[in-house]
Amino acid sequence: MRTLSTLLAASATAVALSAAAPAALAAPDTGSSSGSSSPGCGPRSTADLHFLRGSHEDEHTCSVQDAAIGLAKSQCQWLDAYGNSAHNQIVLAEKARGTLKYPYTFLDAAISAYCPQYKL
């Protein structure tokens, strides 16, 4: 039940972030190639695997992992659109607070994997 609520909450956050900046958060097709973090999950890119380990989302179901990857990429796209700063990183983490157990860890893993140029 917790996994389902996490998936729904992650999806809701992604929708909320998308509503705030629809053009900026349109996820590019980065493709996932090679590797898998859980049996039965589709292929995962090296960046996906790095993110899933860093955010501890590798312990969840494939559908939760997919939602987490989508949210992480959306966070990087939000920083692309609105600028990277400590303030904006705090804004993103706080927006995800109701959805994620560790929003700052999640954002750090997202930045490390998908937009490392934004490491502070």
Rank of each mutant, 00 (worst) to 15 (best):
E57P: 00
K119G: 10
S112D: 14
A19E: 11
R53F: 03
K119V: 14
T6K: 15
C62R: 07
Y118N: 10
A20Y: 03
Y102S: 05
A26T: 12
P39T: 09
A110R: 02
S112P: 07
K95H: 00
S37G: 05
A10T: 10
G70Q: 07
A113K: 03
H56R: 13
I111N: 02
A10Q: 13
L71N: 03
S32L: 05
Y104M: 14
A47L: 04
A96S: 09
T30S: 14
D108S: 13
A24G: 14
S85Q: 12
L8P: 02
G54A: 05
P28N: 04
D48S: 11
H50Q: 10
N88H: 11
S63T: 05
R2K: 10
L92A: 06
D29S: 08
D108W: 10
T99E: 04
A12K: 08
Y114H: 15
Y114M: 10
H50M: 10
S38E: 14
A20C: 06
S5W: 14
D29C: 08
S55H: 03
A19F: 09
G70P: 01
P43S: 13
V15M: 03
G40P: 02
A81T: 11
S37M: 15
S37Y: 08
S45P: 01
G98S: 06
S85R: 14
T3E: 15
L17Y: 06
E57C: 09
I69G: 00
R53W: 08
L25D: 01
S38Y: 02
H56F: 15
G54V: 02
M1Y: 10
S38M: 13
T105S: 14
T6E: 15
D66T: 13
S55T: 15
G35F: 00
L100V: 03
Y118R: 01
K101T: 05
E59T: 15
T13Q: 08
H60T: 04
G54I: 09
A24P: 01
A12S: 09
